Simulated assay, not measured.
Amino acid sequence: MRSWTVGTTPGGAHQGPMAVDAYELTGADGLRAVVWTYGATLAELWVPDGTGGSVNVVLGHPDLTAYLEPRNHYLGATLGRYSRNVGFGRFRLDGAEHLLDLNDRGHHMHGGVDGFSRRVWTARPEADGTALRLRLVSPDGDQGYPGELVAETVYRLVEHGIEFEHSATTSSPTIVDLTNHSYWNLAGTGTVDDHLLTIAATRVIEFDQRMVPSAGPPPPVAGGPLDFTSPRPLRGCTADRFFVLDGPQPAVELSHPGSGRTMRIRTTAPGIGVYTADRFPTGARSGICLQASALPDAPNRPDFPTVRLDPRAIYHSRTVHEFVLG
């Protein structure tokens, strides 16, 4: 496995200046991934184009300086401790209220201003060069979360695809949900307007504030503008929503008829966030984020799948992106 240093971070509240390394993973079927230790980030994913070449299908920044910018859109990063919104940054656990960092219009989003996407992870490549194991220790009280959390993210090239595997343990009861936040463009260039999207979800989360779910069960999507239960073109569709998955696999299918390339997503997560990048300051709609994760504000919603993690238990999630050509 080839590796190199891409730069050094200036340091922050939990880490001093640290070198950031890149690792190149190579699969047996022509897939190639580049993963950075900053944010445990998938910086590139090259898939075969059927003519002997390959195309990079994830968005990335050109250098470390761009990733260090306050608004880097989490391109390719691993999010944590909690990958979605926590309303007003507050939740109760065993009778105690915890206040998290408020980094998004009075709410807590994607782990806070100094979340896992802003840390340098330690990396350990596997011997065959197809997988990289990254580890991060988050101290008790980090961004307001209780308990010391030991998190691990594994990027693994599998047959015709890539697997994201996340796990964690804690020293005391806490909440956790880790996910990858890549933006996908199967054409490798331009916008995603000529892509087709299918989601195995008949319900969608409604929000009453910034990504804070409304009370009550998620409403159905049948026949409405968010009904992606059959393939729909993304042209003219603006999305920044969260879908509750029905369970059948694949959970999501994204296809690009012009190249004949299709991506199928299988996941253990209960839902998927979809964002068409309409508010990117440059390159609007240049990619689509398909974030498999826990439901928004789940720590405050007993009717949602739990995100609680206790000592001696292991948090685990797995998502696979499979690529088909033709």
Rank of each mutant, 00 (worst) to 15 (best):
R92I: 00
L93Y: 02
L93N: 03
G95C: 07
G95A: 08
G95D: 09
G95N: 05
A96P: 00
A96T: 15
A96Q: 14
H98G: 02
L99C: 11
D101F: 05
L102G: 10
N103Y: 05
N103W: 05
G106D: 02
H108C: 06
M109W: 12
G111L: 08
G111I: 06
G111T: 05
G112M: 09
G112Q: 07
G112D: 10
V113G: 12
D114P: 00
F116C: 13
F116L: 14
F116R: 04
S117K: 10
S117D: 15
V120Y: 04
W121R: 09
W121Y: 12
A123Q: 05
R124L: 12
P125H: 10
E126I: 11
E126R: 15
A127G: 10
A127L: 13
A127C: 01
D128I: 10
G129W: 05
A131F: 11
A131K: 07
R133T: 14
R133D: 15
L134D: 07
L136F: 14
V137L: 13
P139W: 09
P139S: 07
G141F: 12
G141E: 13
G141L: 12
G141M: 11
D142Q: 13
D142T: 02
Q143S: 11
Q143N: 11
Y145N: 02
P146G: 08
P146W: 08
P146Q: 06
P146I: 06
G147N: 04
L149H: 09
L149S: 11
V150M: 08
V150R: 15
V150C: 11
A151M: 07
A151I: 06
E152V: 12
T153H: 14
Y155H: 12
Y155K: 03
L157E: 02
V158Y: 04
E159T: 14
E159A: 14
H160S: 15
H160V: 00
H160L: 09
G161D: 03
G161Q: 04
I162N: 00
I162A: 04
E163R: 15
E163W: 06
F164Q: 10
E165K: 12
E165N: 09
H166W: 11
H166A: 10
T169H: 05
T169M: 02
T170M: 03
S171L: 06
S172I: 00
P173S: 07
I175S: 04
L178Y: 02
L178F: 06
N180Y: 04
N180Q: 13
S182Y: 00
S182Q: 00
N185C: 10
A187C: 09
A187M: 00
A187F: 02
G188E: 03
T189V: 12
T189G: 10
G190I: 06
T191V: 08
V192L: 07
D193Q: 08
H195D: 04
H195F: 02
L196D: 13
L196C: 09
L196I: 00
L196A: 11
L197F: 01
L197G: 01
T198G: 02
I199S: 01
I199R: 02
A200P: 00
A201V: 04
A201L: 06
A201G: 04
T202S: 15
R203S: 06
V204E: 01
V204I: 11
I205N: 07
E206L: 09
F207L: 12
D208K: 08
D208L: 00
D208M: 05
R210F: 14
R210G: 10
R210C: 11
R210P: 07
R210N: 15
R210D: 14
M211I: 14
M211G: 01
V212A: 11
P213V: 07
